[in-house]
Design a protein around this nucleic acid. Sequence first.
DNA 1: TACGCCATTATGGTATACCAATCAAGAGAG
DNA 2: CTCTCTTGATTGGTATACCATAATGGCGTA
Lengths: 243, 243
Amino acid sequence: MPPENDPETGPETGTDSTANPAQGADVYTRLRAAILTLDLLPGERLSERALEGMLGASRTPIREAVLRLETEGLIQRKGRVMRVTSLELAEILEAFEYREHIEAAVAQLACQHATKADITRLQKILDAGRQGADAAAWFEIGSDFHILLAELSRNRFLVRAVTDILTRIERARWIMCSLPSARDEAHDEHSQILRLIELNRPEQAAEALKEHGRGLRDILAESLSQRSRAGLRARGVDIIDRA
Amino acid sequence: MPPENDPETGPETGTDSTANPAQGADVYTRLRAAILTLDLLPGERLSERALEGMLGASRTPIREAVLRLETEGLIQRKGRVMRVTSLELAEILEAFEYREHIEAAVAQLACQHATKADITRLQKILDAGRQGADAAAWFEIGSDFHILLAELSRNRFLVRAVTDILTRIERARWIMCSLPSARDEAHDEHSQILRLIELNRPEQAAEALKEHGRGLRDILAESLSQRSRAGLRARGVDIIDRA
DNA sequence: TACGCCATTATGGTATACCAATCAAGAGAG
DNA sequence: CTCTCTTGATTGGTATACCATAATGGCGTA
């Protein structure tokens, strides 16, 4: 590996002289984080060689990470060029549509399978995240809740589906993370959903989840609307209307 | 690359002396096919070096293919060892449960978006596959129908979900491909589903799809039941009850 | 000035050497 | 005969060299 002189990404690459095992997963994690936090901008071009320097690893683990992120939809290849997937309004709306259906299924199955212990455990997590949490930790908890909820369905495919779709939406959520007012509201809605599942009301739980998702979608659509584009573009973020 | 002498997989590897570009995708396709057709048995251990010889490519494209198949759930890694994912009855049943919900969503959205032209096009494909098709081509058409149907939802995530879940189930379907009687029945059910979408009856279309899936699931569960295990084990196929 | 052609370069695809860790088999002791 | 420790082989992880080609920028021409 060539000597790493530029401070580039941060405190990385301070490894030893030989191969650095298990660094492959780390490369994946860091690259993924860089994309999700918009450290790498949507639409930005990537090259394996550049990432090699940026992440302090050779092309092999880079390639693995890129391949994974490609299947997650965070990176796209068009011929030989490789870019961070652009934010496309239409796709995000499709994602929310999909999510509605998925979480309706989750609600129904969770009602069938969730135990009292499951509910209280989830409620505890919810309450724990209520006080003193920064924006980043806040929607970390939001994601966790939806994934944990999916696990109550006892269906691994639904868990995967929820996990995947949250990944897809995460960058958009990050953009509008400057709205702390929504936090308490989210907590209440999450609790209400949990209660409906506890009461074995699948229809109502599904409806509450759908409504919850729609609320987020609307906030998000507003944040990405024409009127708000200017501020985003100043931060380097560009949203595509039709691809 | 070492000279390839054994007829091993088939007519492959007859390339030139230098690197063989775009062979990476081919390696993926062939390895995937080998797994789905049970040429590589569920639970069978794999090694990158062995695959290197079997597929006539170096470890780099092998690694890429393996990584892809891992995300598709066809290969699993437990620590350092890598195996073809075992057939697990519980997982297959979960897959069908998931599929029911996914296709209900497909039905609903397809009713909203499908045009007359879409319906007739799909019906044509269905009819074309009716006569003279061997078992392999038959459930190729079955898969295609469900994917094309998903595309009528105009939601790329649903398309992906259907594609994924069909992949998961495909090996199980392959096992019970010896039941040609189901072919006409499937054609009729598919046509009926299409008709209900054309008539804009989302509830009934969803129910028909669910019923269609349940029928297949039951046949499949029967094929994988204790009573039928002996014949399968003779072919080298082993099914796990609880993992 | 604008458009298209060509040379250079950058990039991804491939093959391969090296390493550490794991697994397995075999030898030796009890 | 069994259990354990050692040792060697196998394997995945990593780094890197080579190659064909697509991308890019410059140049020449209309």
